[in-house]
Every structure is written in C-alpha cells, then in structure tokens.
Simulated assay, not measured.
Amino acid sequence: MTAIPAGEFSDYVDAIAGALVRDGYCVVDAGVPDELLWALYERTGPRSSAAFRRAGIGRDDSFRLNSKLRTDTIHWLSHDYPAESAYLHWMEYLRLELNRRLFLGLFDFECHFARYGKGAFYKKHLDAFAGNTNRILSTVLYLNPRWQDSWGGELALYRDFDSDPIENIAPVMGRLVLFFSERFPHEVRPAVRRRYSIAGWFRVREF
C-alpha cells in the first residue's frame, strides 16, 4: 500500500503521480480537508435528504439492474449543493495538477455517492465500459467514521480477473484510492455495517 502523508498540496499530488507511474494505483490516507469530509458525510450518511436509487451496470441503452453483481444505491454529485460542489472543485484542482505531471489528457470528472447497506456488495469488475475507453482514472473516497477492520467492506484490487488481490483496502474515513480504470479489476466486499463512499472517474474527451 502506498500511504501518502498530509502536506503541501503540490507534494501530495507529486506523491500520487509517482505512485500511479510506479504501481498504477495509490492509497491516500490524508489530503481531503476534514471540514469537507464531514460535510460530505452529512450529505450521504444516515441523516441525508439526498435522493438515492438502485445502482445498475452499463450506460444508456445497455443500462440494466443486476442484483447478483451489485446491491448498492447511488446519488450523482452536482454543483447544486455546497458540499457536493466543493468536492467537485477539489477534484477539478487535482485533475489539473495530475495533467501537468502525467500528461494524461484528463478532460472532466464524474462521481456519485455510493451507499452499501449491511451485506451489500459489488462483484469483481472493471470500471471501463465495453467499447468505450473514456474512463481513465478511477477514484474512491471513503466516508466512514471510526471504521474497524473487523467490519469488512474492503475494496479488493486485482492485477487480473484470475489472480489473488494485490490490496485489500479498508473503507476508512478520508481514505482516497486512485487506480487506472482499465488495468485493475476490483470488488467491494460485504460488511457488517452500512458504509458510504464517493466513486468517481477522471475521463478523457470522446471523439
């Protein structure tokens, strides 16, 4: 696991970029401001008034629900709410800084809150849609205060669909995970508690 300490934002992004070049993924345990984390938790947590819906797979005409593959509910972030807008601005700054360092051509960012109830899961999958390569870099920000490892709910990251996990990442409050979308199959394992996160994708322009 590549754990990156808090510090100046430029050093923080340097460390992320270095880990992505070296390993293709990284795990960041500090960086997103605490005030923003708690505002996001209020927006998605048990007292949230946001409208959540069942998550599906695919997009547009290929979208379908599949409770054998995933059982979470989601709410897409927008600039209509202060906490959501603040996070989108924060990730926009990260997008610009990563482009300066890695020349990835990242064009925009989309993300949604994900709520996983007790026992909910998302089976092993890739984030890139079939025939569509615009999702380049996946992100997950966890919003679970005082999470204990014994509760489960890890993100298991794989090199390929047939290998053992290279990382089992606990959904600790404030932890940010980034990985290349087409390179790493991954799954969200069941937990004995509800848990909350923001799943997002930096994308390149479609032509």
Rank of each mutant, 00 (worst) to 15 (best):
H186I: 02
L143K: 09
N132C: 13
F63D: 07
P145C: 15
S10G: 07
I169M: 07
S10W: 00
D29H: 11
D160S: 15
D164F: 06
A39T: 01
G131W: 09
A191H: 04
A39M: 02
E154M: 02
F52W: 06
P145D: 14
Y142H: 12
W38H: 14
N66E: 14
H79T: 15
M173W: 00
A114M: 07
S48P: 00
Y41T: 08
Y25W: 15
R203P: 00
L20R: 11
A6H: 06
L106F: 04
A6Q: 11
P171E: 04
L102F: 06
R195I: 07
F113E: 01
W151V: 04
M173I: 08
A86E: 13
L94S: 10
L20D: 10
Y81G: 04
A50N: 10
N168W: 03
S85V: 03
K124H: 00
E206G: 14
A199R: 07
S163Q: 08
R195K: 12
W147C: 13
A120L: 05
T139C: 14
V172D: 10
A51P: 00
F161W: 04
D127R: 13
K124W: 02
I136D: 03
A50W: 00
L126M: 12
E8K: 12
I57H: 02
L96D: 11
R195F: 04
R146W: 00
Q148Y: 00
D164Q: 14
Y41I: 08
Y81W: 08
I57M: 08
V28C: 15
S62T: 15
W147I: 12
I57L: 05
N132I: 13
V28P: 04
N144P: 05
I166C: 08
G174V: 10
S163L: 06
S49E: 14
P82R: 12
L176C: 06
R59W: 03
R193S: 02
